[in-house]
Nucleic acid binder design. Structure first.
Length: 484
RNA sequence: GGCCCCAUCGUCUAAUGGUCAGGACAACGGAUUCUCAUUCCGUUAACCGGAGUUCGACUCUCCGUGGGGUCACCA
């Protein structure tokens, strides 16, 4: 089998992370079955069009590590891949639909439609729908309106009381009664098609074999099934994917909880590998206990059958953070440092590093196992580069008294002062300090915590001897003196 | 409200008639004889309710209940 999948973003804003999940599945499926992954821009909504959004969407897809075999920028055998450049094609099929009795001209004004809807609501009808007014127009009336230039749309002519079944690759057969289906608009009065027409025509013409889309499309799928049927085309395989929700509630992703757009996650400092690995499990799992996946492994294991049937799947931000920390820890110090710098450059974030790569990489190595996302870097490294504010209460909280704190710090100071620069290494410092607390019978906790606070102003930091080493002799002594 | 989809630990999920109902995240406890983190070990914890089918139901059927989607000249 050869699979051809597509993603059809509409340039109405920043690409949503849920959409990126669908891209991942589309991409993996096409690759798994030696096919093509296609990007098609669905810019048929002129009202919500956002300038530059299409380019940013294309860019973020690349940023996440995906590439398309056909689409904007590279073309392909079925170009163009931008819907507003294909208007003639849709018009042609809309007319063909009318000819075949599957659609009709509708001259109703938006005002009349609003009125009809309002009346239906006032009567508390189970649902609002077009009253099919223009289905009864005579051939002559239609001709006359057309000749007079009366604005029109083209609607699908849904047959009465028939059962339409959708073969969903995940949910199985789903049947609808056509009495519940509205005569949806296929071609708008401005000559631009709606999704229903445009996507079906393009999917057919572009020989798409599998369509993965959000489950919110399910209610309109009878319209799509009927379009294919009227035009005499074979339907691609359709799979409806669960939507994303915020963990712990049924609410969809919200900015209050964190990033929502794909680019936002990059900006917060998530690694692409972590993001993609996390996204794999947002609606799918291999049925095994394996959960660390490379893209290639995923391509190999992915299958439509193992996509979850549930309509909502949680986007667990804690889990994402865990994935990210995992991938960060698996990076070498050099690579991590380079990635942090690249991230800061791209998002114009000022890092508090010294600029001396040798020292900076050492610091990165020390914070690596604590780092969950890049946006935390500055907080974690601050005291390495600038004198911390040391709170007195915190400083003396590990000893019985101020006197004892002073004594401990004095002893550390004196011991460290006679430690020469060439001996200022992590291992030697550890030995010297341990000797000291043994000699004075300090408890490790009171001594080291006091020293930690004096050096960093914090109670949670990397190992104290690592900090001493990175800070250097002069700076370390200076900070102890300040604390005293 | 009509139509459609869905329902397992706190959270996300595995299980396709027979399992001590498994894993991960989170939480908690222990170890790594300084904190935090990491790593390792461990603990707590779930089949929405009711009928039915069956020797046997988390798994199949029906009815409830609950959640979600949709009902635009948006996708």
């Amino acid at each position: 089998m050869i699979a051809r999948t597509r993603i059809a973003p509409s340039p109405t804003g920043e690409l949503h992370i849920g959409h990126m999940r669908t891209i991942l599945y589309d991409y993996a499926f096409a690759k798994k079955y030696n096919g093509q992954f296609i990007v098609r821009i669905e810019d048929t909504d002129r009202n919500r069009f956002v300038e530059g959004a299409a380019d940013r969407t294309l860019q973020i897809i690349k940023d996440y590590g995906f590439s398309w075999d056909e689409g904007p920028g590279i073309g392909g055998p079925y170009e163009p891949y931008v819907q507003t450049q294909r208007l003639e094609i849709y018009k042609k099929y809309a007319l063909e639909l009318i000819e075949k009795g599957g659609a009709y001209y509708c001259f109703c004004t938006p005002e009349r439609l609003d009125q009809v809807r309002a009346e239906q609501q006032a009567q508390h009808l189970p649902k609002t729908c077009y009253d099919k007014h223009c289905r009864n127009l005579s051939k002559e009336e239609v001709e006359k309106n057309l000749k007079d230039g009366v604005p029109y749309v083209i609607r699908i002519k849904i047959p009465a009381n028939e059962t339409v079944v959708l073969h969903d690759a995940i949910h199985g057969d789903i049947s609808f009664n056509t009495n519940d289906v509205d005569d949806m608009i296929l071609l708008k009065s401005d000559g631009i098609p709606t999704y229903h027409l445009a996507a079906m025509v393009d999917d057919h013409l572009m020989k798409i074999t599998h369509v993965l889309r959000g489950i919110d499309w399910m209610p309109s799928s009878p319209v799509h099934v009927l379009i294919y049927k009227f035009l005499g085309w074979d339907m691609p395989i359709i799979a409806h994917l669960p939507n994303l929700k915020e963990k712990g509630s049924a609410a969809k992703l919200s900015k209050r909880q964190g990033a929502v757009a794909a680019v936002d996650f990059l900006q917060e400092g998530y690694l692409v590998e972590a993001l993609v690995n996390f996204l794999m499990f947002v609606g799918w799992n291999p049925g095994t206990e394996k959960e660390i996946y490379t893209l290639d492994e995923f391509i190999n294991d992915f299958s439509l059958e193992r996509i979850q049937k549930t309509d909502l799947v949680a986007f667990d931000r804690d889990k994402l953070l865990w994935f990210n920390g995992y991938y960060i820890r698996n990076l070498s110090d050099d690579v991590l440092f380079d990635k942090i710098k690249a991230w800061a450059k791209r998002f114009e974030i000022k890092l508090n590093f010294s600029g001396d790569d040798k020292i900076d990489i050492k610091v990165v190595a020390l914070i690596k196992e604590r780092l969950k996302k890049f946006s935390e870097v500055n907080d974690l490294i601050s005291y390495f580069y600038s004198k911390p504010e040391v709170k007195k209460e915190m400083l003396i909280s590990y000893t019985k008294s101020e006197e004892r704190t002073k004594e401990i710090l004095n002893n550390f100071y004196n011991t460290l002062e006679i430690t020469q620069k060439e001996n200022w290494t992590r291992d030697n410092l550890e030995k010297v300090c341990h000797d000291l607390i043994t000699k004075y019978e300090y408890s490790p906790k009171e001594a080291f915590m006091t020293l930690r606070v004096a050096l960093s102003g914090q109670t949670a930091t990397p190992h104290i001897f690592d900090i001493l080493e990175v800070l250097g002799r002069e700076e370390s002594l200076d900070r102890i003196k300040s604390a005293l």
